[in-house]
């Protein structure tokens, strides 16, 4: 059976992109399977891990929970859009220097969450950083080197510094 494909157009990493997709395809499937860009990962398929985080109109979203059709007319950015001419983006630089990468499967999603955060709020406080990255599960690092790298990316502190005792009472509300 041939299925009806529908055309969608969006700006992907600064480039006009047109692709015919199946209506039930997720944005993740469109990016990985139709466009062959493998930087965005699938970790759970249900929005519980954040490995597929991309930026749509400047906001971090789970590509696995988004229908491909929802990309239509949007400005989309994936991890492939961060580095320019082989030069790492500052956020990538900080992750590299801050030893924030272990297995690396969560890394693209975390980079995109960080990039979106800095786009919205160039000077986030610790609480806002945690809010922005707590939709991205990492099983390797315990988040500490990631956290300090995000901090460094917004010019807040030296690499490797320890996060101050994050009080839970506020966050629990």
């Amino acid at each position: 059976m041939t299925q009806t494909r529908i055309p969608v157009q969006f700006i992907l990493n600064g480039k006009k992109t047109a692709v015919d997709i199946l209506p039930e395809q997720s944005a993740l499937q469109v990016i990985r399977d139709e466009l062959g860009m493998k930087g965005t990962k699938e970790g759970c398929g249900i929005g519980e891990c954040g490995a597929c985080t991309i930026e749509v109109n400047g906001q971090a979203v789970n590509a696995c929970l988004m229908f491909g059709v929802q990309l239509d007319g949007c400005r989309v950015m994936t991890v492939e859009g961060l580095a320019e001419d082989g030069r790492l983006h500052p956020v990538q630089e900080k992750f590299l220097a801050g030893h924030a990468v272990q297995c690396g499967f969560c890394t693209p999603g975390l980079l995109m969450s960080t990039h979106a955060l800095l786009g919205e709020n160039p000077e986030p406080d610790d609480h806002q950083i945690v809010q922005a990255i707590s939709g991205n599960i990492c099983r390797c690092t315990g988040y500490q080197q990631i956290f300090s790298s995000v901090r460094a990316a917004c010019g807040q502190s030296d690499q490797g510094s320890v996060r101050e005792n994050q009080d839970s009472k506020e966050e629990r509300c």
């Binding site: 906001q59 789970n62 929970l65 969450s113 809010q131 966050e171």
Partner: peptide, 15 residues
Amino acid sequence: HKCSFTFASRQIRNM
């Protein structure tokens, strides 16, 4: 307004 802080994750809140 307050419930929106702890709703799922940032990514989900955006959608």
